[in-house]
Design a protein around this nucleic acid. Structure first.
Length: 309
DNA sequence: AAAGCGTGGTT
DNA sequence: TAACCAAGCTT
């Protein structure tokens, strides 16, 4: 008997992985021939961004910058424009920084250990584990929002996982991870897929669920969530919205944009957000104008600002 | 360690 | 229609 399998973990793993054999979506980063770097690119793009929106961007991106060295050589403004509307554009900068780090520290090859992966910019606990599982077919604990929700329901009998990951959650998560590398990486992909397509946050489809009969939440009659209320992130009028507005303008302009051209109702907020974008390396000042970083003004003789005598 | 960080589709 | 939600990371 495998260690830690006192409950029905092995049965759940077997059923979910069998279901996955048929139900797996065909996603471009799952194709054979995709490099570990390609897997990492997909994982970073998928952080907080729906799969459907990532697909076309990933495909174009990998054609343009197939390797870490190619991306490291790209200029930030190109990278930010190619990132398009995926959101959280600092991920694009961090991905480029990760490419540079792979070049400098690992000779251009994505490292294969969890600690080396975690040391890359933009790579956290989830992404490192996902690369181990999906790129290297290695045993790891892949706990994303989908897997956490599946385990919350099947294992804990509650509708939602805790707001932030707990030690107990990781401990329980490991109980489901098969000893075998190949089976473990299959479980990682399959459990994520189940959460993404069947055991969804809003309206779970228990009918086609391969583990409905093993689900504690179902057995308990789907009790409503009685944990802490889940925070609703506001949007209207936030700095986030303002920053997004500025970034969209910068992406859409071939030349630096005067802040005054950005029709934003609050001048103070606009200035503050411009400052924060510059501080984050997402924008650069050219006198009173703003551009994406890496933008090269035509090297005329310093006509960016009116000459001061 | 809680809060900040984009964007747009779904319910 | 207004919330809710999405393959998280960083500070």
């Amino acid at each position: 008997m495998r260690e830690g399998c006192s409950g029905g973990e092995a049965e759940v793993v077997a059923r979910v992985t069998a279901w996955f054999a048929d139900a797996a979506r065909t996603l471009p980063w799952r194709s054979s021939g995709v490099t570990p770097w390609g897997v990492l690119v997909s994982e970073v793009m998928l952080q907080q961004t729906p799969t459907a929106r990532v697909v076309p961007v990933w495909e174009a991106w990998m054609v343009r910058w197939p390797t870490p060295s190619a991306l490291a050589a790209a200029s930030p403004d190109e990278v930010l424009r190619a990132w398009g509307r995926l959101g959280y554009p600092r991920r694009a900068l961090r991905l480029r920084a990760a490419a540079e780090a792979v070049e400098e520290r690992h000779g251009g090859e994505l490292p294969e250990t969890e600690s080396d992966l975690l040391a890359l910019p933009g790579v956290g606990s989830y992404t490192a584990a996902a690369v181990l599982a999906f790129a290297y077919r290695r045993r790891s604990l892949v706990l994303d929002v989908n897997v956490r929700r599946v385990l919350a329901r099947v294992d804990q009998g509650v509708e939602h996982p805790a707001r932030s990951e707990t030690a107990g959650e990781r401990e329980r998560g490991w109980r489901f991870v098969p000893d075998d590398d190949e089976q473990a990486s299959l479980w990682a992909a399959a459990s994520m897929e189940l959460g993404a397509t069947v055991c969804t946050a809003r309206s779970p489809k228990c009918d086609p669920c391969p583990v409905a009969a093993h689900c504690s939440w179902r057995a308990r009659g789907y009790p409503a969530w009685d944990g802490p209320p889940r925070v609703a992130q506001s949007w209207e009028g936030t700095d986030r919205q303002c920053r997004g507005w500025i970034m969209a303008a910068l992406r859409g302009s071939p030349s630096p944009v005067p802040l005054g051209d950005l029709a934003w109702p609050d001048d103070v907020q606009l200035a503050r957000c411009a400052d924060s974008l510059v501080a984050d390396g997402l924008a650069v000042r050219h006198g009173p104008r703003l551009s994406l970083p890496g933008f090269e003004p035509v090297p005329a003789d310093s006509d960016d600002e009116p000459a001061v005598a």
